[in-house]
Design a binder for these strands. Structure first.
Length: 1016
RNA sequence: GGGGCCGUAGCUUAGAUUGGUUAGAGCACCCGGCUGAUAACCGGGAGGUCGUCGGUCCAAAUCCGAUCGGCCCCA
């Protein structure tokens, strides 16, 4: 206990020792078990895809997770499971493998064989897991890596199958079309992320064509940039709230939205005007009469119609646009697909077999020939290209399975209100807005590596959804060898249809990987096949945290799945973190080359420093990363604690003091202990409310109070010769405060805290100890000390401003408010020492003000005329002043002076100096008498002797011989304060001294000091 | 293009829900002190038009509107 420390703080060395110790003693596992059987706190790890090394943002979220797991453990909660998780499926993994194989599209994968491809994916997933686990451990992120949940395991997938079957039973899992960005060359849809990588600026023809209204000699003006979609036209859309004009344009009657008429047609004559709603249901003639359209060919209303470009009348080809498809669903029309999967026209027409770009050109010619074209123009706009093969993307209908979020939107929205979001504006802002859109979740993917969709269909469109492996196998007619829940094995399983006896085959899709990670809150238990009770005890999950981008990713997936399956929210508290930016406040990026490797940073500045950087400021505020700032901050905080421990422990060890409760002696001790309790209570509150940055601020403040105030003022007590009660009391308080700080800091800086905790207590681990308990405290004690601090600060300021250096004692200091009398008395020793004053007391300001009465020149000028100066002098005489003060009137030069002729000013007594910049007024008596003067000189001498001792490299226990020669008053000071001077400097007076000497100038007085070390 | 968050001293930040003394800390800086925490410790000082503009109000960092900059999400 109270072990020695190296003299200098070396955080890297500490971290090294501590992590070796944890490893050796298996402290992490011990901490997992320490609260077994106690109340639970639940957590789920948002599983990363370990197909690349972790970056600093990952380190930040993991540090934040760890912070609260450690805190809750210290607060006595049992966190089980407390395990890592790995997200294994999905496109990122596939792309990684494609890169390795040097292949680029689905066809090549199929050629290689799905079996081989998926085997490579499976391998690739774990390539970086080792690095991730290593970095996470290095960061001190304590979760069980050996028991990690793995989304590609059959058990995990089986839990998802159960969930999907439940959704199917509720009618929430169904097949539909989705209009997706699609690369005709790769034969695949692209994710939003991929699309956003490939936008380019292109010049395209856009055309205006005319659609004839059935039975009338009027036309709709329609604009499009994709002429190849015109053969598939099924509807026209207008905005019901816009106003449309019928104009005579070159002899033809044409409808166009009012605001665009001038821009598009330039010259025309207005014939009529109608609101958009007027046209809804109006039939029109097919522009290109080739496709047989059984439904449609009438006008619909659409809010998506704008006046920004075009004609305000929008052509709808439901197969090739998301808005268009939504219209089709609403109108319950048929879907006509006029293009094949390779992006070639498939419709029996003059353009069959042409790619869509060429077809567009031909269609423009065709429309021109038929006189249906009003106008052609070239416009520049950004359009998505395939990021892999640079092919122009098209929007294309892809068969897809959906989760019907829109059908139960109310639930999803309602349960969100039960979630405590940090920061809270996410709930109704970014997250709430997204939920309000209530979009269906497109679940299936046209890919290979993922959780297989558990759906088998037969030729009669009957559907079988197995909710477990067993249910599938029980119904199967064929199962391949080495069967597993991945493609291609799972595809080979054949099932007999219960309804029509025909053979059922699997829908060939894997599902969205967000469904994997979003199922973690039950699938990590293999629920409901196992661990039902454990799941129930831990649900909803108490705490999760990830970065902001997960609002529409993991946070969304968890919330939706839980709402639909369990009719409740998945999590209770969620901390949403912002990103780590570079030192200029920009996003770190590969291209700028300013991405930083968290492992390297930890090597350079230490883990605790990096963690402290993350915990500064609210988690939901972007942070600019700088190594220098991190180091500085940690050196300041941890270094101060380290030095405080050194000061305290060095003395306590000399006295053989061992940590134990002692009776409190001084008011300073009582204050420190109350401050500590106050801090504990505030830190606990802030941690419980998920405001870690405020908790850290509380701890910082306490460290300053300990170091800057308590320890500094307790040094005299520490240095007293005997082990007095006062000494024991202050040891106890210093220990107690340091120990509390160490424990409170343990979740923030686990390495440093562990180190210091072991030094303080000789106990096994701070992470097996309890968080300091909240106790009642006396806030009046704290307020009193704040007043004392204020007085000391103010006193020093006044001394400094008036050239009254602290070394010279002053006679008295007055606090000009009598109500502080009791406090001044209580802390008079402390204040006297800090301000070097002989006396301190509180008194009414009035008794230190002198009133001066002056003649009011305006009124008395008329009375005295040119004698005014003489009258002023006469009135200023003290007997006249006194008389006036007593009776309010006095006779001056034969005239009577009354209140009306007098101005009264108040002056501070000349003997005092003050400072009126603060609320609390303090007066310092600046008068010096001889004794004070000599005492000041004595202190000046001591200071110079000490300085010479230091220059001679003496140890503070070394004794010296001393000889003083100099000015008379210096000699007088020396003899008057001889005992003080000699004892302060470990000196003996000697008439001849052989060591070093030096001549000093003390306020103009010459002093020669000679010192010599006494031989031991 | 739509939505959201942020902007306080050179740096890191508190204060915004509930408008109200002189916008509070820490680091760095300058001046000084201490010399038994010394690679430490302490005091004082300077440093802020609270991004900008406008509005509401007796009163705005705080509420409202616009605008600029940074970041994120969606299209």
């Amino acid at each position: 206990m109270l072990d020695e420390l190296p003299q200098y703080f070396d955080s890297l060395q500490i971290e090294k020792e501590v992590s070796e110790y944890w490893e050796r003693e298996n402290i992490m596992q011990l901490s997992f078990a320490v609260n077994r059987g106690k109340r639970r706190f639940s957590f789920v790890e948002g599983p990363p895809t370990a197909n690349g090394p972790p970056h600093i943002g990952h380190a930040e979220t993991r540090a934040m997770k760890d912070l609260f797991l450690r805190y809750k453990t210290m607060k006595g909660f049992y966190i089980d499971p407390r395990i890592a998780g790995w997200d294994c499926h999905g496109l990122p993994v596939e792309i990684e493998v494609e890169k390795k194989l040097g292949i680029k599209n689905k066809a090549e994968i199929e050629k290689l064989g799905v079996s081989k491809f998926n085997a490579l994916c499976k391998e690739s997933v774990f390539e970086y897991v080792k690095i991730w686990a290593e970095a996470s451990k290095r960061l001190g992120f304590w979760v069980d890596y050996d028991r990690a949940y793995i989304t590609m395991k059959d058990e995990y997938i089986e839990s998802e199958w159960w969930a999907l079957k439940e959704l199917y039973k509720k009618g929430l899992l169904f097949k539909d079309f989705r209009i997706s960005p699609y690369c005709p060359r790769c034969g695949t849809t692209l994710s939003a992320h991929e699309v956003s990588q490939g936008y380019k600026e292109v010049d395209d023809f856009s055309i205006y064509v005319k659609f004839k209204i059935t039975g009338k000699d009027e036309y709709f003006l329609v604009w499009t940039t994709t002429p190849w979609t015109l053969p598939a036209n099924e509807y026209l859309a207008v905005n019901p709230n816009f106003n449309y004009l019928l104009v005579n344009y070159k002899g033809e009657k044409i409808w166009v939205v009012e605001e665009r008429a001038k821009i598009v047609l330039k010259k025309y004559e207005i014939l009529d005007s109608k609101p958009g709603s007027f046209f809804v249901g109006t039939k029109y003639e097919q522009l290109i009469p080739i496709l047989r359209v059984n439904t449609g060919l009438y006008v619909v209303a659409g809010d998506f119609v704008t006046k920004e470009d075009g004609s305000g009348i929008v052509h709808q080809a439901p197969a090739f646009g998301a808005d268009d498809y939504a219209v089709l669903k609403k109108e319950k029309g048929e879907l006509y697909v006029t293009v094949d999967e390779a992006g070639k026209i498939s419709l029996e027409s003059p353009w069959k077999g042409l790619d869509v770009q060429t077809a567009s050109d031909r269609i423009i010619e065709y429309l021109n020939e038929r006189g249906q074209m009003i106008k052609t123009e070239k416009t520049s706009h950004s359009y998505p290209f395939c990021w892999r093969c640079d092919t122009r993307l098209i929007f294309y209908p892809v068969e897809s399975w959906f989760i019907g979020v829109s059908m139960v939107k109310e639930k999803v929205v309602e349960y969100n209100q039960r979630v405590n979001w940090k920061p809270d504006y996410i709930r109704d802002g970014r997250f709430g807005n997204f939920l309000d859109e209530g979009k269906d979740w497109a679940l299936s993917r046209n890919r290979f590596w993922g959780t297989p969709l558990p759906v088998w269909t037969c030729k009669n469109n009957h559907v079988f959804v197995p909710g477990s492996k067993k249910e599938l196998l029980d119904n199967s007619t064929y199962v391949p060898e080495n069967f597993e829940l991945h493609r291609p094995k799972v595809d080979e399983v054949k099932v007999k249809c219960q309804e029509c006896d025909s053979e059922m085959i699997r829908e060939p899709y894997p599902i969205d990987t967000w469904f994997d990670s979003g199922s973690a809150f039950f699938a990590q238990y293999h629920y409901p096949f196992e661990n039902q009770e454990l799941f129930n005890e831990n649900s909803p999950v108490d705490f999760i945290t990830e970065a902001m981008d997960q609002t529409r990713g993991w946070f969304y997936a968890l919330h939706v799945i839980s709402s639909l399956l369990f009719d409740r929210n998945a999590y209770k508290n969620v901390v949403v973190m912002e990103f780590v930016l570079n030192s200029k406040g920009e996003k770190m990026s590969k291209s700028r080359g300013d991405q930083v490797d968290p492992l390297q940073i930890m090597d350079r500045i230490g883990t605790d420093s990096l963690r402290l950087f993350f915990f500064q400021g609210p988690p939901w505020k972007p942070k600019r990363f700088s190594e220098e700032v991190s180091v500085e901050f940690s050196r300041k905080l941890l270094g101060t604690i380290y030095n405080s421990y050194l000061l305290f422990s060095t003395n306590a060890r000399l006295d053989n003091w061992r940590p134990k409760k002692e009776k409190l002696v001084s008011d300073l001790d009582k204050w420190m202990l109350n401050r500590t309790k106050e801090c504990i209570s505030s830190v606990t509150k802030h941690m419980d409310e998920y405001d870690p940055h405020l908790a850290l601020d509380d701890i910082k403040d306490l460290v300053l109070d300990l170091s800057q105030w308590y320890l500094r003022l307790s040094r005299d007590t520490f240095w007293s010769k005997d082990v007095t009660d006062a000494k024991k009391s202050s040891y106890f308080v210093a220990y107690e405060t340091l120990n509390s700080i160490t424990k409170m800091l343990a979740p923030f800086t686990p390495f440093f805290s562990e180190y210091l905790f072991m030094k303080l207590n000789g106990a096994k681990s701070v992470h097996l100890s309890e968080f300091p308990a909240e106790e009642e405290f006396d806030s009046s004690v704290i307020e009193e000390m704040n007043l004392v601090k204020e007085i000391v600060e103010s006193g020093r300021r006044i001394r400094q401003k008036n050239g009254l250096i602290l070394r010279r004692p002053v006679k008295e200091i007055v606090v000009t408010d009598p109500k502080y009398g009791r406090v001044m008395k209580k802390f008079s020793g402390l204040i006297k020492k800090e301000l070097n004053t002989k006396d301190i007391f509180a008194a009414d300001l009035k008794s230190y003000l002198r009133q001066e009465h002056l003649l009011d020149k305006k009124s008395t000028g008329r009375i005295f005329g040119k004698d005014l100066a003489a009258a002023e002098a006469e009135f200023g005489r003290s007997e006249n002043q006194l008389e006036f003060k007593k009776s309010g009137r006095v006779t001056v030069l034969g005239k009577t002076i009354t209140n009306e002729n007098v101005d009264t000013k108040e002056h501070l007594d000349e003997r005092f100096v003050s400072d009126d910049t603060s609320d609390l007024r303090i007066l310092i008596n600046k008068e010096f008498d001889k004794k004070l003067y000599l005492e000041g000189l004595a202190r000046e001498m001591v200071r110079r002797i000490q300085s010479m001792r230091k220059d001679a490299n003496m140890d503070y226990t070394d004794r010296i011989y001393l000889r003083i020669e100099g000015d008379e008053s210096l000699m007088e000071a020396f003899s008057s304060f001889k005992e003080y001077i000699l004892s302060s400097t470990q000196a003996e007076e000697k008439s001849s001294v052989g060591g070093s000497d030096k001549v000093w100038d003390i306020s103009g007085l010459e002093l020669k000091i000679s010192i010599e070390k006494v031989a031991p």
